[in-house]
């Protein structure tokens, strides 16, 4: 029992040391807390893709849907603005927008939507099972509201953007209240570290 307790304390201390204070980051540090980037989905041009296809780039993984009235457009606009701040360095970054509403979001709709937020954004779509697996891996959730008279419904979903480095390790979390400046600051560091 005492050994078990000690193990908890050590685990906790390590975690707090790696997550809490210190470090150059302005976003939330999730190194070692969240699993590496891994998925099997279809991109908005119809190609089957996995995490390996994005190795070497800083990936910003975000879950949403194209009919989303608030969180998704504001987040994507914020990410686009942060990437613009980075200038040419932004070419090393890739935003992956995974739809949590594959029923309504066709590949074409997803493609149009993603491009509207810039060339760094790619829409991804999966089968119900692929999406469920991905959500479970990152411990995120989505659920569908009751459709109104014309069949429209809201989707409750995660609002965070998971940031992965070029090797696919989870590094940072963009929170709903993270500012464009903080995002640009941290992405610059992450992209710079890759080149250096």
């Amino acid at each position: 029992m005492s050994r078990l307790r000690r193990a908890w304390l050590v685990a906790l201390a390590l975690l707090l040391a790696s997550c809490g204070g210190g470090g150059p980051w302005q976003l939330k540090d999730i190194k070692g807390v969240v699993p590496d980037l891994a998925f099997n989905l279809t991109d908005d041009s119809g190609r089957r893709v996995s995490a390996a296809d994005y190795r070497g780039r800083t990936v910003l993984l975000f879950f949403g849907y194209t009919n989303c009235p608030d969180v998704c457009p504001t987040t994507l606009v914020k990410l686009a603005a942060a990437l613009k701040d980075l200038g040419p360095a932004a070419h090393g970054a890739q935003v992956l927008f995974v739809t949590v509403d594959p029923k309504r979001d066709t590949l074409e709709a997803l493609h149009r939507y993603a491009r509207a937020f810039g060339s760094h954004v790619t829409g991804l779509r999966g089968s119900a099972a692929e999406l469920r697996e991905l959500a479970k891996r990152y411990r995120i959730s989505y659920s569908y509201g009751t459709p109104d008279a014309s069949g429209n419904y809201d989707v409750t979903h995660s609002s965070a953007v998971f940031v992965f480095d070029a090797e696919g390790n989870a590094r940072l979390l963009v929170m709903p209240d993270s500012g464009e400046k903080a995002i640009a600051h941290d992405l610059k560091l992450l992209l710079g570290a890759r080149q250096g």
């Binding site: 879950f63 411990r139 995120i140 959730s141 409750t156």
Partner: peptide, 12 residues
Amino acid sequence: FNVYGVCGRAWT
């Protein structure tokens, strides 16, 4: 506890 908003709630 904003983690529930960040990760998504089970229903609205």
